[in-house]
Design a binder for these strands. Structure first.
Lengths: 217, 217
DNA sequence: CAAAAACAGGGTATAATCAGCTTTTTTAAC
DNA sequence: GTTAAAAAAGCTGATTATACCCTGTTTTTG
């Protein structure tokens, strides 16, 4: 009397975990495990030999092709397939990384089976499944995407203008011209900024300024 | 017999809404409205004349100083105060915008009173309150923050490595050394890339590669 | 007025840019 | 397998730009 089962695949390099999980999920009457794979390359091989799963449970750390790469590949080649990250890490970086790669949710391996099944059914229906673990990270990520300043370097208006003009094919002589200053003054600016940014080349200058968010491209 | 009430403030330019809401929330035994304000400037004036609220309910569209600005100001001057956005818009932009500005949650004005009270108590306790409305936007935002490619330029592995090494103070000679190639081969790479990216300087190369997302800094 | 900051000059060594050419390695066709 | 074509790697030599000196003048500012 149950509705149609959800077809999934499991990608994880630990065989015991993979097969134990498959058995566990199969025991429930809601989920059908189509195939499993021990890394991304194995998954690519097997996905064409099987029916397309609705959801893929994806580990992160795997040899040959990890969870990030595998998720990106899935989203490029089978965008309708949902990926649910399943990992032991609860740090920000892997969570944000998997979501950026295209995962629609993130579950910890220490979750209860019932919660995982909820997540799978949730993600199958709505394309994503956000729990408290993930929502906080998401929010913090979006809010921290701009500051993160190191020891901010002070630059005056002219130096800033100069830095912006450095992001071009203009020579210093031409920059001096544009700014209506002597090339030697530009020399002074450059040397001052070299010191401030601890670099020795125009390229280094531009990159340092970009990193500090002083200029945009 | 209720625990301590949560002290809040309401910032919204519609007087009837503001006062009606205040009355509604005060009727509950969980929330105490310290003050209200009709825009960000009014809020700034009143916040120093009152006890500091735990949570501020913040509208977005307001004259003189809108919700984005007001939220940023709060987060800069009273970072411990939580902001719960309260708006009629359920589009991506305002939601993402308010969260980026520092709001810890986002509720629709068409919510039920009980849900709003839940959100307020939630945000007071945990600093954020994520509902289904917000989580999907967050996820989509984070996933769409990268692509947007123009006409992609093809570069091979060596050229890519070279581009990465260009983002440094290394001279071409040193790059050649690192890559175990003759400096003249590096010359060839450079010239080929100059053509591909239509530039004439190392700086231009680096910037073009960054724009195309071929390299990261 | 004195000190600091900004601007400007001359000069040199090194690195970057550019054009034209040879050799080696790959690729693909025969 | 041979071989022609194409691609990648390597080279010479010259010009221009960049990086780094030291020094002096003007302007701002306390």
């Amino acid at each position: 009397m149950h509705p149609e089962k959800i077809n999934i695949a499991i990608v994880d390099d630990h065989t015991l975990f993979r097969q134990g999980l498959a058995s566990l999920l199969t025991d429930s009457d809601k989920i059908n495990v189509l195939f499993d794979a021990e890394n991304g390359q194995d998954m690519i091989k097997k996905i064409s030999l099987n029916p397309i799963p609705e959801v893929i449970l994806m580990d992160i750390t795997m040899p040959l092709m990890d969870g990030y790469e595998s998720t990106k590949w899935i989203k490029q080649n089978y965008p309708e397939v949902k990926v649910l990250a399943l990992s032991m890490f609860e740090e920000d970086k892997p969570i944000i990384g998997m979501l950026k790669s295209g995962a629609g949710g993130y579950m910890l391996k220490q979750s209860k089976a019932g919660d995982l099944i909820d997540a799978i059914t949730g993600i199958a229906k709505q394309s994503f499944y956000i729990n408290e673990l993930v929502s906080g990270k998401l929010l913090r990520n979006i809010q921290n995407n701009q500051p993160l300043k190191t020891q901010q370097v002070e630059v005056n208006t002219n130096e800033l203008k100069f830095l912006e003009l450095c992001c071009s094919d203009l020579t210093y002589k031409q920059i001096a011209d544009v700014m209506n200053l002597s090339p030697h003054t530009i020399d002074n600016y450059r040397e001052a900024l070299f010191q401030k940014f601890d670099t020795k080349s125009r390229t280094g200058l531009v990159i340092a300024a970009l990193k500090q968010d002083l200029i945009k491209i």
